[in-house]
Simulated scan of single mutants.
Amino acid sequence: MPRRTSVRRNTVGLVAATALLAALCVASLAIGTQHVSLSTVWQALTTTVSGAGSATGDEWIVRDLRIPRTVLAVVVGVALGLSGTLIQGVGRNPLADTEVLGINAGAGLFIVTAIALLGLQGIWTYIWFGFAGALFSMLLVYLIGMAGRASATPVRVLLAGVAIGAVMDGLGFAVRLRYPRAFDNMRFWDAGALDGRPLEVAAAIGPFVALGAILCLVVSRSLNVTAVGDDLATSLGGNVVRTQVLSLVAVTLLAGAATAGAGPIGFVGLMVPHAVRRFTGPDWRWILAYAVVVAPAVLLAADIVGRKVIAPSELPAGIVTAFVGAPVLIWLIRRRAVGA
């Protein structure tokens, strides 16, 4: 009976979170430097779906500017939420996140270098460098974290990630200063902004995010087994190596796609798992399911706040999430349970 009650509660909570995400999507289409009425939003959506007529005035703002921005926020939010949750689960590290561990920085460095040295422009040309950078930085962080005689601990991996991220951020800035063309192209991307991207960007990264989400679904059940430790998980019949390899591929796809699409946006994958775990409990299947809807809701909310906080200018969503996420990270580090 308690298990049935927990499943019912989690299901109701997931439906409520989905409704909140839908409401934030509508708000993202209506709120901005120029407010648009809900009737105009609906008219723009219907004409976009039907393909009838050309949009003018406020409808043009919704169709050509805010719909691509909102869709990109949802796709990137899903990628960030799942990648952060998966890293925390498979690595048994409550402080893990693609930004904290330097994975986003690695993807960003490879993308900036490809644009500067190879002259790549379209997302279909440099997204592959995002995957390579995410994989390279993730492997490097864990190799450094496991180096030496001491075993890899969450704190060692965290410190290695912070160090690698700082180095790669520095190299990325050096490339941008050396090649002004790359700096101009990456100016808004570098801050984690969602505006100014056509719908083709979300369409380009969407398949990779979907593939990463499928891999998360495949390993979700085994995450509950591997959470007890490698030795005990093996004795219980869990395939630890398979789970780790699939998780590595999933995080590479999710982090690389998110960084290529919107730039290095941090702390979403750190905050969301901790927030939903208080409601769902320790079952990683539920945590991953909630991350799919809660993470894009958080990113959309940050983007909406960024539009209004310094109006008529805008603050990139990546800066807003950093303002919120940095205190959360400090709070997590200071918790006695994490220290233990």
Rank of each mutant, 00 (worst) to 15 (best):
L95T: 03
V90Q: 12
A150H: 09
V294C: 09
G339A: 14
R221S: 03
L158C: 13
G32W: 07
R277T: 15
W128Y: 06
A213T: 04
T98A: 03
L139G: 07
L143S: 15
T280W: 06
G13A: 10
P2F: 13
I144M: 12
W60R: 14
G318N: 02
G256M: 06
A182E: 10
L254R: 10
G269K: 11
L82P: 08
V74C: 11
G325K: 09
P327C: 00
L199D: 00
D195N: 04
V251L: 08
A317G: 02
D283M: 08
L158Q: 10
G306W: 09
V36Q: 10
A337N: 07
G106W: 05
L253D: 12
V276D: 11
F173N: 14
A317L: 02
M186E: 05
L20R: 03
V76R: 02
T5Y: 12
T226L: 05
D195E: 08
L86M: 10
V162P: 09
G172P: 05
L299C: 13
L199W: 01
L332D: 11
P2I: 14
E200I: 03
A311V: 10
V167A: 15
V249I: 14
I31H: 03
G212D: 01
L86W: 06
I214L: 07
R176C: 13
A147L: 11
S83C: 03
A147E: 10
A182D: 08
V305N: 10
T321D: 05
P180M: 12
R9I: 09
R221P: 00
V276M: 12
R334C: 08
G84V: 07
R278L: 14
G91R: 02
G133T: 12
G339V: 06
D64V: 09
G130P: 05
P94K: 04
V328D: 08
A134S: 14
A257W: 07
R4S: 13
A174R: 03
V26G: 08
R242K: 11
L232I: 07
D303F: 10
L300Y: 05
I214E: 00
F208A: 04
T11E: 09
A132N: 03
A44G: 09
W189A: 01
P312F: 14
L223G: 00
V78T: 08
A233D: 02
L315K: 04
R278D: 06
I214P: 00
V167M: 14
T226K: 00
V328K: 09
R187H: 06
R4V: 13
T243P: 01
A202H: 03
A152C: 09
R149L: 14
A255S: 15
V240C: 04
S50C: 09
W42A: 15
G32Q: 08
D231Q: 07
D58W: 02
L248P: 00
A260E: 10
L101Y: 02
